[in-house]
Design a protein around this nucleic acid. Structure first.
Lengths: 193, 193
DNA sequence: CGGTCTCTTGACGGAGTTCAAAGCTAGTGG
DNA sequence: CCACTAGCTTTGAACTCCGTCAAGAGACCG
């Protein structure tokens, strides 16, 4: 819980009472590497704060072609759409890339918590603002013409994820094929020496 | 102001007092077709609610290649990153595709308004949540392989914008060339008959 | 009716995809 | 502790859609 509370503390100051309310609203969960936290089509909907490890959301895709939507290392929320209202059912799968720990909250608890601690609205608004910026960055990334540039920008912005996620997932995230990414990485490497 | 207030009313109920505070925080502005509301590099930063018409934000781009980031018809906020905090200077240009009217608010007024009417946090959180969903949809669009599919998805989601924005801007938004869009539209049309 | 902006059409070249197979690497179980 | 397997990455060759360059046809506005 430490990480979540410290993240909140960056935006707003909570009383110990309020901190307790926050703690009570979430449930802890460990997820083993490669295991699912959430499955597309499920009706039970919640959002997760990643306390340890790294998760990822993706669209299952028809003919076995997954589309990676988000990587969420420690300190991030997933799914970052915070979509607890619009759809009853999840559109994404969410699984863990490493053994991870998360704090879960479902829709009802989320609404109740916001009622109990209204100043959390500010925290969530700021979090969403940051995510909107991150997504804008991603859109700009897609508007780049060459796959090589897309990858280089990704490395710049998320050097940590490059280390922790397999290449074919990064390729999927960037909208290119694993083979193409492999070839471009080679090009970049040979050019440097 | 009617549209803005009715949009807010969808999420939270304001007293007439509070409505007055909202009205006082915004300034009205008309923008002629093709005129700029905001210029990349400017230091004065605000967000706009589109009351009438349609605006668009875009990255000027080095060699005269604009990248369209957002279309904002009536009822929408622009820029949708709500980026009043992170950067002091704007990264985008914003102009009008039709003669339009907007409500402007700058950073200070925005913070003050949220202090004065804290329940607006809820409204903005919900608005951002919706934008996050919309951006996710856009990301999925980029992950599609064929330009034709990207365009078809765009038409499905934003049939109104297809009518109101010139084709080369839609092409830019989709990350494809105007020529390619033109050819694909032709393909789609001939296939239907 | 001229000028500018926008859309269309053609030909060529190239980056990325597809299909296929071989090399690696890490995790499992004997 | 090694052997084996499954998943991941690399490499090659053929193909294709998109981008580029260029020119012409519309459409809109003063």
């Amino acid at each position: 819980m430490e990480l979540l509370l410290s993240e909140i503390a960056k935006e707003i100051r909570l009383t110990t009472e309020e901190e307790k309310a926050v703690q009570a609203a979430f449930t802890h969960r460990k997820i083993q590497k490669r295991h699912l936290l959430m499955k597309a089509g499920e009706t039970f909907r919640y959002i997760a704060f990643v306390e340890k490890g790294i998760l990822r959301s993706y669209l299952p895709g028809i003919k076995e072609e997954e589309h990676v939507i988000q990587f969420a290392p420690e300190g991030n929320w997933i799914p970052d759409s915070f979509n607890l209202v619009e759809d009853e059912i999840s559109r994404y799968n969410i699984d863990a890339l490493e053994n991870s720990e998360v704090w879960l909250i479902d829709r009802e608890s989320f609404q109740e918590l916001l009622q109990a601690v209204p100043r959390l609205e500010t925290y969530f608004r700021v979090v969403m603002q940051k995510r909107l910026n991150a997504l804008h960055l991603r859109v700009i990334n897609y508007l780049m013409h060459f796959a090589e540039d897309k990858y280089k920008m990704f490395v710049d912005v998320y050097p940590d994820i490059v280390q922790r996620a397999p290449q074919h997932m990064i390729a999927s995230y960037l909208g290119i094929k694993p083979e193409t990414l492999s070839r471009n990485r080679k090009k970049i490497a040979t050019r440097k020496s």
